[in-house]
Design a protein around this nucleic acid. Structure first.
Lengths: 215, 215, 215, 215
DNA sequence: TATGAATGAGTGTTCATTCAT
DNA sequence: CATGAATGAACACTCATTCAT
């Protein structure tokens, strides 16, 4: 009489487990093939379940990919939040974010995200569906930028959206991705120089925190 | 009576016209769908010709898209070259390039290029085929950057590839594209601020050309 | 309660049934059209299933036809083997083979085999794939011929390959096929005379078994 | 006023020449590809004329192939007739025919004929169309057989159709064709042995012309 | 007359989705 | 609930044939 819930939860837990397995298998495949080459057959085979079973968890192929995107975005948001919660100036924390993203580019997560991003950019259905998560993402970064402005680190004459989008341009840059994957440069080095350019570019000219600005 | 050429040209002109119509229709569709959703049936229907006719002009779907990509890249390369040939400092010319690209983003050309770029990223076949054009493109920009370094405009301590890829990150940025398409900002304004950030970022600290660096 | 097999067999039986239906329909069509005119659409329509279903059983059109060829060749090989295992002289058994083939010519099997044979001759892919079955087939006949020679029935001065191929020329003769299908002659009669010619032709002149050779 | 015909003939001659070129090109292609791989495009290209022009000479692809078949059959008929007109016994002349056919098997004519034969056997349209030529062909051979019977060379108890079709089975045998193309045996040798078998098989037992029949 | 661009029905094959078991 | 056989619309591509020039 105490808890019918666990009994339900048991099934539910299995269900979630199965769902997680499907997502995981799909991610694996997505690292090898792109969205259009991804087939439900292959996913089912890799999970070791019947194709029909996939549809008990995800009504459409799209939903499956959407779920992965959501998962990944969630991961990024968490990463951002944990970095934001870190002590240090806005610049230091933005640098950490840059570094974290660039370092992830060679790993699964990074490659997966770019793969998804391509599909997301192209397919408006996907685009619409995650506006809120993207908004969350940008508002976290925007918070940091505002902080930096408030603290006098950043140039107050620059419009925030531009500072934000310039930053995200570099975060989500195919140019840098290619550069990193070509192994022509190490992520740490790239972060260093890109930060140098960006933060010099948005630095508050009135501030004396940058040695090269001193006389 | 002294031109056998026009007679030949008549048929050829019609041929080219038809080809242009196909390319144009394909471009239109590509603005709505991506490469994989693009169907030869739809293109034919939109041009108003039979499907088989498409294949008189392009042996494979790939070739059709490749032709568009080539055309667009050619256009960009020409744009870059004509801007590079313009008088002015490296920075001024890079700014012109930025402006030209951002201004094009609302037009067909810009959106088309982004659409293709997505596909290009995904399909290695396309990637291979146009490496030389991409190389041409980057070497033009690299030339400007080297010029700017030689003239003392740009920070000599920054590695050229990083300066280049930071620039292209902004040129080919989905963030800026979205910002512009959202009509939240005018291209001219965006160019102004992005230039401010980038060129401040890469400016030669030893140079006194930038008023905000003076004491 | 001691058979998990029937449960498995149920689905499997249905599967095999469906497969058999497809093969049968394909055979029917192959009696009317040749390999190139055979269309997956028509087969599906004739079986009364969707086109896609065909591909659950045969990955490619080729495989479908190959399966039929294999089936038919297997049947012939078994027929040959069972006749070879029969008592009697080599000549008697070769005659039985001739009779069996000629009798089958009016039935599906015979006509089907000729239809396939045409395609086999033309398409090297099919040719290669079944070389071993053809080899098996000829080696059975060759065995009989060698037996006949060893027993003194056949002329030892004739090269075996020629005796073999002369025999198969008559077995797989379009001329005889046409003659039989024209109903101008009964298979039994044809066998009788053709045997007379062939075995007189290859008879051992030194042997006294043939009355017409006696003085 | 004497002969408007030559003037017409000039055009007509050109027309026939063109037609011959088309036939020749088609034959060339047919030696490489089979009927279904044969494309009107390729023929036109090889002749060096426009595809539409083909249709001024042959209303359908089928007619073109039919014309070649006719041409080839005509050639064979002439060959048969010229051999029949030769002095010698029926057997000797039939042997010449066998030799002539086997020798041609490695050459263009032979291969072409087999290629056509495959298509002809399968496609009833072609089959119907040339019944008369086939009839001519068989009646020539039948004539020789009757001659041989009349002269006492051949066994009078064998039905003529069977003697005829046994002969054509060997003439048009895929088995012998393969044997010859495999270069396992020389045509002359094959003719020798096949003749031995066939003519021994159909020999008149009452006749004393065959040494091996003597006591 | 000769052309060759245009046609469009037809091909084999794929795959997300459904549903009877 | 899980299955996987069945579906059928969709796809890129081909080619004999037509016909305006």
């Amino acid at each position: 009489m105490h808890e019918p819930i666990p009994a339900l939860s048991l099934k539910e837990r299995q269900r979630q487990q199965r769902k997680a397995l499907i997502l995981q298998a799909t991610e694996e495949v997505l690292l090898e093939k792109d969205y259009y080459e991804l087939s439900m057959d292959e996913i089912a085979a890799r999970v070791g379940i019947a194709k029909g079973t996939l549809y008990l968890h995800f009504a459409r192929k799209e939903d499956l990919v959407l779920a992965i995107l959501e998962e990944q975005l969630q991961g990024i948001i968490q990463m951002l939040q944990s970095i934001v919660a870190t002590p240090g100036s806005a610049q230091i924390r933005l640098e950490k974010i840059l570094k974290s993203v660039f370092l992830s580019l060679r790993g699964q997560r990074g490659r997966l995200l770019y793969a998804l991003f391509g599909a997301v950019e192209l397919r408006s259905i996907l685009k619409e569906h995650h506006r809120s998560m993207f908004d969350q993402l940008t508002s976290i970064l925007m918070g940091l930028i505002e902080e930096g402005k408030a603290s006098g680190e950043f140039d107050p004459s620059l419009p925030n959206p531009i500072m934000l989008h310039t930053f995200t341009s570099m975060l989500a840059s195919y140019s840098f991705k290619r550069l990193l994957l070509s192994e022509a440069i190490k992520p740490e080095e790239l972060v260093e120089y890109v930060s140098l350019i960006y933060f010099r570019g948005i630095a508050n000219p009135a501030s004396s925190s940058h040695p090269e600005r001193r006389c």
